Amino acid sequence: MLPVYKSGKKLEELNTKDLPALSQETISSFVQVASASLIPKNINLYQHQQVMLQKALAQERKHCVVVTGTGSGKTEAFLLPVLASIIKEAKGNWKPPQAPNKTWGNSIKWDSSRKLLRKETRTPAVRALLLYPMNALVEDQISRLRSALDAKESLSAMDDALEGNRIRFGRYNGSTPVSGHPFKSDGKANTAKRSELTKKIMRAHSEYEEYKEQLKNANSELKEANREGNKKK
Rank of each mutant, 00 (worst) to 15 (best):
V4D: 02
K9Q: 11
K10L: 07
L11G: 02
E13Y: 05
T16W: 05
S28P: 03
S29Q: 08
Q32R: 14
A34Q: 04
S35L: 03
A36V: 10
L38H: 03
I39Y: 15
N42E: 11
Y46G: 00
H48Y: 05
V51I: 15
V51Y: 02
Q54L: 03
K55T: 03
A58T: 09
V65D: 00
V66L: 11
V67P: 00
T68R: 00
G71W: 02
S72W: 01
G73T: 09
L80H: 02
P81F: 00
K95G: 04
P97R: 04
A99I: 09
T103W: 03
G105K: 08
I108F: 07
W110D: 06
W110Q: 05
S112V: 06
S113M: 05
E120T: 10
V126Q: 13
R127M: 04
R127F: 01
A136M: 10
A136R: 07
E139K: 12
D140I: 03
Q141A: 06
S147L: 11
L149H: 03
D150Q: 13
K152G: 06
S154W: 09
L155G: 08
L155Q: 13
L162G: 03
L162K: 06
N165R: 03
I167G: 01
R168T: 14
R168K: 08
R171Y: 04
Y172C: 12
Y172A: 11
G174D: 09
T176A: 12
S179D: 09
F183Q: 11
K184I: 01
D186R: 13
N190F: 06
L197A: 10
T198G: 05
R203H: 12
E209A: 12
A218V: 09
A218N: 09
N219T: 00
S220R: 13
K223P: 00
E224K: 13
N226F: 11
R227G: 10
E228P: 00
E228N: 11
N230Y: 07
K233G: 13
